[in-house]
Design a protein around this nucleic acid. Structure first.
Length: 518
DNA sequence: TTTAGGG
DNA sequence: CCCTAAA
């Protein structure tokens, strides 16, 4: 008996008999977490984030509040509209003419409302306020105004502080998280942008991390499309407070190393949420809009960002350098140009799907690629999936070598829900057309190899729901509408492969199913 | 680890 | 998405 695994398909170039698979070590790479170094090559999305607010910098003295806030200057103040136009060739008048957007919206976007939360809006994310200097030497502390965080077990997370309404969450693990002391500040499900003041505070680390990387929201999201635009890199500028230069405190643990005993204290008063681009039917409820915004914000903040550091106009990429080496020191007058920025973590989403190289191995893709890329420049096709780009790959750099903290264990919660885009569905359908419905790992490799957040189980699940979606009436469907033609292909493919599964087992290798279908 | 299905 | 029995 021959398993369908060992079948080879015509001349499509994609042969994947089980025995011919790449060595385990290679195959593993697929799921290997990328290091931050790997991701260092910036993707086309440049810097999407905006950091705004005040940053206070001062030399650590003996702990008294000798802080002087310095107004930071936001540079590259490009109007939100301009940025939008640049990143998304989109106008409210004729959205369906925009390549890709029409795909995403399935052409059914006639009366949608476009909401842009631009860099001019006040979507700030709260501030880090005063705090006791409970960091250790050589650390940069981003203090929380609250003081209930043990500095040992903290990595930084969003903590809404106003709203307390309990969200309707069914997942027991979420309850657990909410019940944990680290969430007692309130609900995380309320509109952050309205009144909540989430905190981003780091400790014992020279950059912020998002401990709570995922914010599962049980209910389905109502948005059709959410994306962030390629806003420029707004840097938070700060000037050194020269008057605060002091010799290190004698109370410190290592008073003998005077030169290393200086603490640099930074206070970032607020981070602004990156520019968002939201499309929602005008018939949607306010609540759904709020949820949409919340989802977008938390998704981006969850794991789509990394912090960039700029000193004197130069990006500091080497994370191993000390502050002193970098020029961030109490004594250093160069601190007049210290800037933090939020950057999207690069992600080659569906690069196999979009890349020419793979298309050579995948004739069907080539066709699709032509169709896709014709109306719009290559850059735009990428801009169509910014959410994924900003969100997907952020590796949770395990740069905390000490004991797993309570939070870290808590962090084992459900992954965030990431609705498949039409583009992804297209890629999935295409892959399944070729490979069949029982080779999800291969599907993964073929079409989603670079989308780390899509596991083969995810793809299998998505196919399952696609089949279901295709079978129910359009009225019953939810979420971003999948083009009917795609759903038709789903049903055809599903039928085909359930039909030919038997033949395969009877060693009757079918030709490429795709050809048979077309 | 990957599949296949139920939860 | 999660969880897991099976392979």
């Amino acid at each position: 008996m021959v398993s369908h695994r060992v079948l080879e398909f015509g001349d499509d170039g994609y042969k994947l008999p089980a025995k011919a698979r790449a060595p385990r070590s290679v195959r593993r790479r697929i799921y290997k977490k990328k290091t931050s170094e790997d991701d260092d090559k910036m993707c086309a999305f440049e810097l999407l984030a905006t950091v705004a607010g005040s940053l206070l910098l001062e030399g650590q003295t003996s702990g008294e509040d000798n802080c002087v806030a310095v107004q930071n200057t936001v540079k590259n103040e490009i109007p939100a509209e301009e940025t939008l136009v640049k990143s998304l060739p989109f106008s409210q008048d004729n959205p369906d003419e925009v390549e890709g957007l029409s795909n995403l919206g399935g052409g059914d976007v006639k009366s949608d409302v476009v909401v842009s939360i631009g860099s001019n809006s006040s979507t700030e994310m709260g501030a880090c306020g005063n705090g006791d200097p409970h960091g250790s030497r050589d650390d940069v502390n981003l203090y929380s105004r609250d003081d209930d965080d043990n500095d040992e077990n903290f990595s930084g997370y969003v903590r809404p502080r106003v709203s307390r309404s309990v969200p309707r969450i069914g997942d027991r693990r979420i309850r657990k998280i909410l019940a944990s002391r680290h969430w007692r500040g309130g609900s995380r499900n309320n509109a952050v942008l309205a009144d909540a003041k989430p905190w981003y505070c780091g400790n014992r680390n020279n950059y912020l991390r998002h401990h709570q990387r995922n914010y599962p929201i049980k209910k389905r999201k109502y948005f059709e499309n959410v994306s962030d635009s390629n806003s420029d890199d707004y840097h938070l500028q700060a000037k050194a407070h020269k008057g605060s230069r002091t010799v290190s405190s004698m109370k410190s643990r290592n008073a003998s190393f005077v030169s290393r005993d200086h603490h640099v204290r930074l206070r970032i008063k607020s981070f602004r949420v990156p520019e968002l681009f939201i499309e929602i039917p005008e018939t949607a409820t306010v609540g759904s809009l709020k949820r949409m915004v919340m989802e977008a914000v938390t998704t981006i903040l969850g794991d789509g960002l990394r912090v960039g550091l700029m000193v004197q106009g130069k990006k500091v990429r080497d994370d191993t350098k000390t502050l002193l080496q970098t020029g961030i020191s109490v004594e250093n007058t160069h601190l007049d140009s210290l800037g933090f920025s939020l950057e999207p973590t690069p992600q080659p989403l569906l690069s196999s799907y979009l890349s020419e190289q793979t298309c050579d191995d995948l004739p069907l893709s080539r066709n699709l690629l032509v169709e896709d890329s014709e109306p719009s420049p290559e850059g735009d096709s990428r801009a169509l999936v910014p959410i994924e780009s900003a969100v997907a790959l952020a590796p949770q750099t395990p740069n905390r070598k000490f004991k797993r903290t309570e939070q870290q264990q808590q962090a084992q919660h459900r992954r965030i829900r990431r609705p498949f885009s039409v583009t992804e569905v297209e890629a999935l359908v295409q892959a399944v057309e070729k490979l069949g419905t029982g080779r999800w790992r291969d599907v993964k490799v073929l079409a989603f190899e670079d989308a780390d957040h899509r596991t083969y189980v995810d793809l299998k699940d998505k196919w399952k729901t696609l089949v279901h979606t295709a079978r129910i009436s359009p009225q019953q469907r939810r979420g971003e509408p999948v083009p009917q033609d795609l759903l038709d292909r789903v049903l055809k493919t599903h039928a085909y492969w359930s039909q030919h599964q038997v033949y395969q087992l009877q060693s009757e290798p079918p030709q490429s199913q795709a050809e048979a279908l077309i």
